[in-house]
Design a protein around this nucleic acid. Sequence first.
DNA 1: ATTTTTAAGTGTTAATTAGACACCAATTAA
DNA 2: TTAATTGGTGTCTAATTAACACTTAAAAAT
Lengths: 235, 235
Amino acid sequence: MIRYSGQTRVLVAVDCIIFGFDGDHLKILLIQRGFEPEIKKWSLMGGFIQPEESLDQAANRILKQLTGLEGVYLEQMQAFGDPKRDPLERTIGIVYFALIDIHQYEKQISHEYHAEWFLLDLAPNLIFDHAEMVAMAKQKLRYKAALHPILFELLPEKFTVPQLQNLYEGIYGASFDKRNFSRKLLSTGLLIRQKEKDKENSKKGAFYYILDKERYKNNFQAFFNFVPNPENLIL
Amino acid sequence: MIRYSGQTRVLVAVDCIIFGFDGDHLKILLIQRGFEPEIKKWSLMGGFIQPEESLDQAANRILKQLTGLEGVYLEQMQAFGDPKRDPLERTIGIVYFALIDIHQYEKQISHEYHAEWFLLDLAPNLIFDHAEMVAMAKQKLRYKAALHPILFELLPEKFTVPQLQNLYEGIYGASFDKRNFSRKLLSTGLLIRQKEKDKENSKKGAFYYILDKERYKNNFQAFFNFVPNPENLIL
DNA sequence: ATTTTTAAGTGTTAATTAGACACCAATTAA
DNA sequence: TTAATTGGTGTCTAATTAACACTTAAAAAT
């Protein structure tokens, strides 16, 4: 077999940052690493790419292994390639971030891994450069969510406007005027009000909404302005 | 040396998409590949990562090899990892895109490579998945330039407002009202008007401007709205 | 010398959007 | 029946955006 001679071959790992939302706070799913080095330390879920799979396939495989979920929001974020990032052997890390409905996860939790949800802001020390990866993902999530309708991916199929507002407020660590917020959201035309109400969180009850999936797909790239004064919040 | 056993090691290449602007059109710098497979075919400038360099270092090295330039705008875009993307041997491609002042390049052109500028829309067939990379970079450039002040990186130190407008119009394939355009640009506070005029392009002459570098750095992440009706133009 | 040509430069108005603001409604618990 | 809690909504003002046309400077042509 002819090959490129004289070049270094390295390991390539795919690491997934899995975001969830518990109704009040953003969380990330971490595992206790099962092998050396840094065994038992908290880590992103990752794995080496296999000979016949693409990067996207690897990310989906890893996500499925840990959560059992398929077809969730998954986006490649950045490649990390510091020569010393893995002390054992040079490894390029390709980071993906995923947004999942945390409740879906709880039903299908994998018992192969010691996995745990952590509040994003109270996560433990992570191995290698994983903390840097998480920080970048948080930044990217804020950026993207201010312009595009991606946060729905963190919510169950039926959700209420106050839940949605909680999510936005959690992500930006700010509070928004609910009149303006709900007007903005509803004016996108992406939400369809249901007949039932959610009675869990209030006496009065809040109407459930579902996504208009057709419009959601078509408007996924559209520019919205979900967050007031984004300059102050994103940076 | 202890290593991760049973895993596949692969080549990692860094490929650079180098954009320039000739005053009328966006261009990209391509080279004729100097080795098999696909020798003599047009290709992005790239190379394999070396044992002791990070991805960013590799990208800067490659950029310098080809253009002689350092300190230019360079951003990691995306990793490409289809298992068959390089027919000879599995290679992960990490793509960067660079914005350079094309005139700087002409002074320092490297003669090691058969390099040539092509109009972005009239580029020749490219090897492997390089065309896909270029398409994505073009998309990303449009996206980012609509919100952030990055296109200055394509212009010489002194430039005129009409030149700038030409650049924007070239990138979006649209024409903008010059009154609105110049008002928007000048209202960013990023431009400092010079005393001299550029007399090359008109009888009357257009004032030169330079970037206020301090403000440019501070506002690099700020949200602007350089492009009217971006929804129609970016997608 | 005057006129023509060409691109640069600038101001106003109308429509839309964003953000600040406060009250009423529904339900349950006391 | 009253109080407490959360959901839901409307108006006004300010800011932003986009549409629009004329004047100016300088060189070239007559």
